[in-house]
Design a protein around this nucleic acid. Structure first.
Length: 109
DNA sequence: CAAGTGACTACAG
DNA sequence: ACTGTAGCCACTT
């Protein structure tokens, strides 16, 4: 069992609606700050490991929707975010700093 | 086994 | 501010 992926999904599942976080932040919350790529990798497989996960709330450190091409539809990520009240312009989350949800700070164990 | 790839980041120029 | 390079690590070929 890959505890790492499971831990990633557990954190992603706790991202509140209308909020976003980054791969690096999740990696850091897991104590593996250097494994941000693995977080992205885990998200790529999330559809099989944990279907229904709000993967659209995870963006890169710039608030860019880098993973949108991996969704069922390239526009689904943006559509879902906007549906939650998150404004997206040119694949970039508006007000990203304000909407950013840091698992290290805001997580409730 | 070596080399390539990627939903990432940080740092240097 | 923008571009290029390098570190990172699991997985594929």
């Amino acid at each position: 069992m890959h505890n790492f992926y499971t831990a990633v999904y557990d954190i992603v599942a706790q991202i509140p609606e209308g909020r976003v976080t980054s791969y690096g932040a999740i990696a850091k919350a897991l104590g593996a700050a250097k494994s941000s790529r693995m977080v992205g990798y885990a998200m790529n497989l999330s559809h099989t490991h944990r279907p229904g996960l709000p993967a659209h709330r995870v963006v890169n450190r710039n608030g860019l929707l880098t993973g949108r091409h991996h969704f069922a539809s390239p526009t689904q990520m943006q559509e879902r975010l906007e549906s939650e009240g998150v404004n997206v312009k040119k694949d970039q989350v508006m007000n990203f700093k304000l909407l950013f949800w840091d698992p290290l700070v805001e997580i409730t164990l």
